[in-house]
């Protein structure tokens, strides 16, 4: 890849960094207990529901 300029390399690094940090956060949040904007239900109604639904 000799035809990449230093500016290209910076852009590439930034893009990779953004993708990596964002996705690691996204996956962690999706799988953890809470749900928030990044896990795909921004402002969704159930987000504040107490975690123990009655199972009667």
């Amino acid at each position: 890849m000799g035809d990449l300029s230093w500016l290209d390399l910076i852009v590439l690094a930034v893009v990779v960094l953004v993708i990596l940090t964002w996705f690691s956060r996204f996956i962690r949040r999706s799988l953890s207990a809470g749900c928030d904007k990044s896990s795909g239900c921004a402002g969704c109604s159930g987000c504040d529901t107490p975690d123990n639904p009655s199972n009667s």
Partner: peptide
Amino acid sequence: GCNVPAIMATRTIEEP
């Protein structure tokens, strides 16, 4: 709308 809140809303159904 979105399946995520919809699935949470099933909590109103008490029969498992």
